[in-house]
């Protein structure tokens, strides 16, 4: 699934960052395959969205989040 489809509070593991104008920036900011992400807050109009990325909070637009593939980690 894509990171943009992640619902609030859900946790997922990044599997791939699709090559784009901003993939390099995303990866520099820590969006690296293997990293756990959790969706935290969403801006009032549904975009951008903030994610907890291994202890720090990164916000991005939906377009950017759609370029990241993740696998959902089922809640215990």
């Amino acid at each position: 699934m894509l990171l943009s489809a992640l619902k609030r509070g859900q946790i997922a593991r990044i599997t791939r960052v699709t090559e784009s104008d901003f993939s390099e920036k995303l990866m520099e900011m820590g969006c690296i395959p293997g990293v756990l992400v959790k969706r935290t807050v969403t801006a009032p109009l549904g975009d951008p969205v903030a994610y907890d990325l291994d202890g720090y909070c990164l916000s991005m637009r939906k377009t950017e989040a759609s370029s990241i593939e993740v696998e959902l980690i089922p809640a215990e």
Binding site: D21, K25, L26, P48, Y56, C57, L58, S59, M60, T63
Partner: peptide, 11 residues
Amino acid sequence: SLNFFIMELPI
């Protein structure tokens, strides 16, 4: 031009 909005929300 490059169009993205990737920003840290600091504590």
